[in-house]
Simulated scan of single mutants.
Amino acid sequence: MSAPDARADAAPRPRPAGAGYPAGRMRIRLGGDRSLLVRRRCLVVVVALLALALAVAVLAVLTGAYNLSAADAVRVLAGGGSDLDRFIVLGQRLPRVVAAALIGAMLALSGALFQSLSRNPLGSPDIVGFTTGATTGGLLIILLSAASSTTTIALGTTLGGFATAAAVVAVAARRGGAGEVIVLAGIALSQTLSAFNDYLLTRATIEEAEVAKAWQYGSLNAITWAQVRPLALGAAVLIPLAVWFSRPAAVLEMGDDAAASLGVGVGRLRAAMVGYGVVLAAVCVSVAGPIGFLALAAPQLAQRLARTPGLTLAVSAAMGTALLLIADLLAQRLLAPFQIPVGLLSAACGGLYLMWLLGVRGMDDAEGR
C-alpha cells in the first residue's frame, strides 16, 4: 500500500480540547448537533452575577421586620413550618423576589436590544419613551376599565408601547433613522406622554388616582402569586427568544450594508427586535409599573464587566436580575418599616448613573477610544 493510501486509511487524530476555537471562547453542547460558542469571561461574569443575585434573594427572604433562620425557610419550602412562617415566605417575600428577578432580566434584555438598534447608550425603552407609552396604556386601563386585571393591564401596556414605538420609528425614519434621532424623538414623545399621564390622574377620583399613582411609581410592594404567574409564563416564552436574536443582532451591529451582504433581512430583523423589546418592557410595566434606570444601566454595566463590544444579552439579563434584587432590598430597608417604591429609588440612581456615563464617555472621547 502506498504512503498516500496509508494516510487516507489512518484513523483521524482526536483534536485537543479547545483546538480550533477562537482564543477566550468555549463551546457549550446544547444536544444533538447544536452547540453554543461563548466567551469564557462572559460565562464567568454571568455565574458571578447570578451567585450575587441568589445571595441577595436569600437575604431578602430571611430578613426584615420578621427574621427567619435558613432552617425555618427550608421547612416552609418543604411544606412544613408555622402558619406565620408560611405566610411570610410564600405569601410575601418569595413572590416578590421571583418578580424582581424576572423583571430585572427582561428589562435588561429590552434595554440591550434598543441600545443595539439605536447604537446609542441612551437608547433604552425608558429614555426613548416606550416605557412611558406603555404606562399610558396601563393608566387608561386602570382608570377607565371597571375591572382591571394583570391581563388587561398587560394588554394596555403592550398596545401603548407599540403605538409609541411606531410613532418614534416613523419620526426617526423621516430624518434618516440615526440613533441620535431615535433618542431625541423618543425623549420628545416621552415628555408629551408624561404630561398626558398627569392629566389622566387629575381627571380621576381620589381613590382611582391613588391606585394609579402607586402603580405609576413602579413598586413591588404588593406583588402576589396572582401577578407572578402570568409574569413567569411571559418570561418563559420571551427570555429564551434572546438566544435566537443574539446572532443576527450582532451581525446587524456591523452596519446595515454588511448585514445585508451576509443575508440578513435588515428591515424585518429591526421590526422583530423592536417588537420583542417593546413586549419585554410592556410585560414588566404591567406587573410592577414603570421601573426606570435598569434598562438603561444594566447593558452598559454588563458590557464593561464582560469587556466585549456589542450585544451581551446573557450578561445583561444577569446584571438586570442582580441590580433589581439589590435595589428592591434597599427600597425595603432604607426607611424601614416604611418601604420606598423601587421605581423611585431606581430613578434616583438613574440620574447619578447618567452623570457617571457622561463622565466615562467624555474620558473615552478625550483618549480617542
Rank of each mutant, 00 (worst) to 15 (best):
A108C: 10
G111D: 07
G111H: 07
A112D: 04
A112K: 04
L113A: 09
Q115Y: 10
Q115I: 06
S118P: 04
S118V: 02
R119D: 03
N120C: 09
N120G: 09
P121E: 09
L122E: 04
L122Q: 00
G123L: 06
G123N: 09
S124F: 02
S124D: 12
I127F: 09
G129F: 03
F130T: 02
G133E: 01
T135R: 11
T136N: 09
T136V: 13
G138W: 00
L140T: 06
I141G: 00
L143K: 08
L144A: 14
L144V: 12
S145C: 14
S145A: 15
S145N: 15
A146H: 13
A146Q: 11
A146G: 11
A146D: 15
S149W: 10
T150E: 07
T151S: 12
I153M: 13
L155C: 05
L155Q: 00
L155M: 12
T158D: 01
T158K: 01
G160E: 05
G161T: 02
F162M: 13
A163K: 01
A163E: 02
T164C: 11
A165L: 00
A166V: 13
V168S: 02
V169H: 07
A170T: 08
A170W: 12
V171C: 05
A172C: 05
R175D: 09
R175G: 14
R175T: 10
G177M: 01
G179Q: 09
E180F: 09
V181A: 15
V181P: 01
I182Q: 04
A185L: 05
G186E: 02
G186P: 02
G186C: 06
S190L: 08
Q191S: 11
Q191M: 08
S194T: 14
A195I: 13
D198S: 15
D198R: 14
D198N: 15
L200D: 04
L201S: 10
T202H: 07
R203K: 10
T205Q: 10
T205A: 13
I206S: 14
E207Q: 12
E208M: 08
E208S: 14
E208Y: 06
A209Q: 06
E210Y: 06
A212L: 02
A212R: 00
A214I: 10
A214V: 13
Q216H: 10
G218H: 08
G218F: 07
S219T: 15
S219H: 12
L220S: 06
L220V: 11
L220E: 06
L220W: 05
N221G: 15
